[in-house]
Design a protein around this nucleic acid. Structure first.
Lengths: 366, 366
DNA sequence: ACGCGAGCGGTAAGCGCTTACCGCAACGAT
DNA sequence: ATCGTTGCGGTAAGCGCTTACCGCTCGCGT
């Protein structure tokens, strides 16, 4: 029995194992990596020594020698205020990112990779250095939306494989996104054709987000199709967060402006804020105003009424991003510049339908 | 301008920078690490070369030389089924873990550390190897509940600093948890005294989770205090997941057993399943049956009625875990064996009160 | 004008691992 | 019995970085 917590004493190395097993370090390494063919006898001796010592090879040394860290860096953006009391505000705006990250993790695990995560603050003026730090510790990067400017991405993509999520492909990086246009078109058509709503607004997300742009464009296209006009403009500018949606509705109500029959939100978070504020003012959803989201984050089905939205295969988005990155890392070169995953309309109650969806735990109990 | 995506050509090293700047590698290193005092002139030459080349030092080499990776490993457990269709089931049972991890990340960032994340599957028979792999790539480990058995923890804690979350301290590892007993006592008293409920049940979590044990015990103590008996036993065994809560209620209803006036769930997830199933059967919350949770995960306030629960400082739990681990890594030895963070009762509607809580985005708009 | 000290900056060792290369033992073929 | 072949397993060279150590230059004091 070794003494507990004896870190501080020099950590074990492959030499210790070799000595204990009475073989050379080369043999230990070979056994540990399953290469070549050490004799079963040798193998057993080494394994025994490893077991007894509780030896774990040092990842850094391994990485240095192998030129492969088996680590994928993931950088995403968060909105947390950073003062000491910020812990009270456990914002949920990251649900989306979390699910994506889980997808990345899943994909990574299949290949023996692990996830190195880091987030950049909204107020972070130089995300460059954080990204660089992660880049140095990983074999490739997955960057969420809004982490780096396009030039920033190109710059880092020159030195290391990069996959962006919900961004734009660049000369050196690949982008993975879902089919915003198709989903938004389907949703809008549902509102316009199936429900026959004639006054509809798009409550936008970050103005410079490719996702937002694509959604807005598809929305307006579809609206124009039926010969009516979309409510847009300055007032309808949100920021992908609940607070943004809430603010827009409050502004409109405060200025005594009319509300449209349906509000199409850039994402689910925004819809949460909108529905909350509407309820505060006694405006019923969907009887007075229909509200829809985009993403289908887990909370969506817990809202009242349940949120009609467009489902993105969020987790798969992450897994795909990893797969693409992996093919770049293993030197198969850059595949197509962009991968687009399909979306689907999820009709629940907030659009005016009777729809209710079964919670996942019921669904999986086949 | 360099050619885009020229990975494959040997990556840059400190030698390239040194040559370009016309200095030695030692100087480059010194400038990059801000040690000693290279002359401003030298410094500028190096910085220029770094900028032009877009050089990022290799983390593995750095770690090997420094004996410090600046990486903290985090391992948590997830319940995802692993077949290819699993992506459809984007379970939300991990919300709790996600928020904790964000806390760890926050703490880590302050010290220049990054997060290496890995999850182990419920069906994973040997989490040992995954943990070992992470251990090799990091300076210390943070293990969530249910990842490793106590002996497993002791084993790995002998070789590397380990902090557990919601677990039990061992001879070599430190535990960080929140004050389950105090929170549960306050909650139970609210139900018993303020509302005067006389039939109450505790819907348990994993039988072997320290959190669950502490909560159950506090619950029963408090119930005994007022001289009534708690509803417990086999039927009331859940698993911390929505599915578990749903199943318990379905069982009871199916067997035509009576329901108590209040169901105290081991955590919020469980409460979600309970409330859903209750609603399915036309049983009103809180009029017919009151339901409470534990944790105060973000969804809690979106349920109908909003969930009365016990708030844990989830994010702070993570940040604290990192701080403790950091002190172990930087060789300040093992601090106290356990750190306990305070909890607080959050009264909303599901217990029978009129309470409603303001969403975080409203609260922060002071 | 010379000697000495200060401090910048270069050389090289070493962090823990993988693996090319080679020596050696054992076996089969001649 | 001898030589060639096979293949296990040891030695040592690096992977890219940090840093101890030391030589050199420059500036000051005498």
């Amino acid at each position: 029995m070794e003494t507990p917590a004896d870190h501080g004493s020099r950590p074990l190395t492959i030499y210790d194992v070799a000595r204990r097993a009475g073989v050379s370090i080369a043999s230990v390494s070979r056994v540990l990596n399953g290469r070549n063919s050490p004799r079963p006898e040798t193998k057993e001796k080494v394994l025994a020594a490893v077991r007894e010592l509780g030896f774990v090879p040092d990842g850094a040394a391994r990485a240095l020698s192998n030129r492969l860290k088996e680590v994928v860096g993931v950088v995403f953006r968060h909105a947390n205020v950073q003062d000491d009391d910020a812990f009270s505000d456990e914002d949920e705006s990251l649900l989306f990112a979390d699910v994506i990250n889980r997808g990345v993790e899943l994909g990574a695990r299949n290949k023996g990779f692990d996830l190195l995560m880091s987030s950049v603050d909204v107020y972070d003026h130089s995300p460059q250095s954080r990204v660089a730090s992660i880049a140095g510790k990983s074999d490739g990067l997955i960057l969420h939306d809004q982490v780096l400017s396009t030039v920033g991405i190109v710059r880092v993509a020159q030195r290391t494989p990069v996959v962006t999520l919900a961004g734009t492909p660049t000369s050196a990086s690949v982008n993975v996104r879902s089919d915003n246009a198709a989903g938004m078109r389907e949703l809008t058509r549902h509102l316009l054709v199936d429900h026959g709503y004639r006054t509809v607004a798009y409550l936008a997300g970050h103005a410079d987000s490719p996702d937002n742009l694509a959604r807005a464009e598809a929305f307006e296209l579809e609206v124009a199709e039926v010969g009516i006009e979309a409510w847009t403009g300055e007032v309808w500018r949100g920021n992908y967060m609940a607070a943004g949606g809430a603010k827009v509705v409050k502004d409109i109500l405060g200025r005594n402006l009319p509300l449209p029959r349906a509000i199409v939100c850039a994402n689910d978070q925004t819809a949460i804020g909108v529905m909350y504020t509407l309820a505060q003012h006694g405006i019923r959803v969907p009887q007075d105003v229909a509200v829809t989201g985009f993403d289908d984050i887990p909370v969506a089905r817990h809202l009242h009424p349940q949120l009609t939205t467009v489902r993105q295969p969020i987790q798969k988005l992450g897994a795909t991003a990893f797969d693409v990155l992996y093919s770049m890392i293993s030197g198969e070169g850059r595949p197509q510049p962009e991968v687009v995953l399909p979306t689907s309309l999820v009709v629940r109650g907030s659009c005016g339908c009777q729809g209710e969806s079964v919670p996942p735990w019921e669904a999986s109990a086949r």
